[in-house]
Design a protein around this nucleic acid. Structure first.
Lengths: 219, 219
DNA sequence: CTCGGATGAATTGTATACAATAGAAGCATC
DNA sequence: GATGCTTCTATTGTATACAATTCATCCGAG
């Protein structure tokens, strides 16, 4: 997409996720346009995209608001994601080829590298983790599945989850990826699906735990 | 959404689905604007919506084209839909209340009414069928699931499928809905899911058969 | 004849002005 | 003081002009 439109999208998104714009707050196209330094046209574009990601919602008369992501909403998303990425893993296993398998192996090795030091490189972890899941989606070879999942996987949620990972959590994640690789190598769709579902659900609980401890601190 | 934007959306969508615009054909915003009698702004809005529905795709430099829905694409969509509506049915069963159950019953009765005559009223069938599935989605109570499924269920595909239904197919459909009602009444999520998956997969094969016979006729 | 680059046409991206609409505030009436 | 109407304001919807980009064509050098 174009320059101004992307800028608006990134800017607004960042403002929403950082909490600079609080949940429930109304978003005026004009105000956002000013803050982003662009006109209303690309802002409207950006709002449409954010609405598709459910970060922004519109009321019945088309006014935009920051969506409030309760823990329930996040749980809802995780549950769907577990089902759909499980399905993706199954399809991927049934269609896996050596080239992708090799790439997956390399990404997972990179994940290990990023997290084995004294101070885990969370940014690198996130990047390789994202790539790992993306490769699986690619191997699953379903345009629709890819599109739907992309809308579902909120990288910010992944990010927040990873911020609270300790060494064992990173290792666990790496290990589950290894299991996935084994399932892929055997072209065992059912196995791959089972591992993936577990993988996502574990992440879900990690997120929920982190959320709870944060709430407690805040209180 | 607003008047002009909706008009553009409906018009372009109809043109795509009727084949007036053929698969692969480029869509110029200006040309569409002229044909719809509106300006480019609402056309761009409409194109974005249609892109989300995968009826239109954009190439790397943002030009729009009519998507070509091969049989593989449709199969892909049906398979996803079977999984997701199955999940929706399971959730719906677990959360079902008497009010929704009653509405579902009435919709299904209307389906029977619409198809029991000598000449089935396909339009009425489609409408009540849509409502029936929508109620289930509502009962499933997951905003994300609803949004994703809405994008996935191409009513035109449903329409084409129903056009080729004979009496037994309509009856079969009614019967499967009855089974769903029974599962809902028992709050049996696993049962509801199983029936729904079968229901969608049957529709898939009905569509594929119709498609094949059409191709044969064309050849 | 082919390749590469320049030029022109087509197309999309952005800004801005104005129109339509929804929401809020104020006012009069009861 | 509450209620309903009116007016005003804030906000979004649409049209249009212009800028930026991409695409196709054509011409010349090799």
């Amino acid at each position: 997409m174009a320059k101004a439109s992307d800028l608006a999208y990134e800017t607004i998104r960042a403002m929403v996720l950082s909490g600079e714009l609080s949940p429930g707050e109304q978003l005026s196209e004009e105000a956002l346009a000013e803050r982003c330094g662009v006109s209303r046209t690309p802002v409207r574009d950006a709002l449409r995209r954010l609405e598709a990601e459910l970060l922004v919602r519109k009321n019945e008369s088309q006014r935009s608001f920051v969506a409030d992501w309760s823990l329930d909403d996040v749980s809802d998303a995780f549950e769907l994601r577990a089902m759909m990425e499980g399905y993706a893993a199954r399809r991927a296993a049934e269609r896996m080829d050596e080239a992708i398998l090799d790439q997956l192996f390399r990404e997972n090795t990179a994940i290990l590298e990023a997290t084995k030091g004294l101070k885990p490189d969370v940014a690198a972890f996130l990047e390789h983790n994202r790539k790992f899941h993306e490769l699986i989606l690619e191997a699953a070879n379903s345009r629709r599945l890819t599109q739907l999942l992309m809308a579902l996987i909120e990288q910010p949620v992944v990010w927040r989850t990873a911020q609270h990972y300790g060494r064992e959590a990173f290792n666990q994640s790496y290990g589950e990826h290894e299991d996935l690789l084994a399932a892929f190598a055997r072209r065992d769709g059912a196995w791959a699906e089972a591992i993936m579902v577990g993988h996502i659900r574990r992440a879900h609980h990690a997120y929920a735990d982190a959320h709870r401890s944060l709430s407690k601190n805040a209180a």
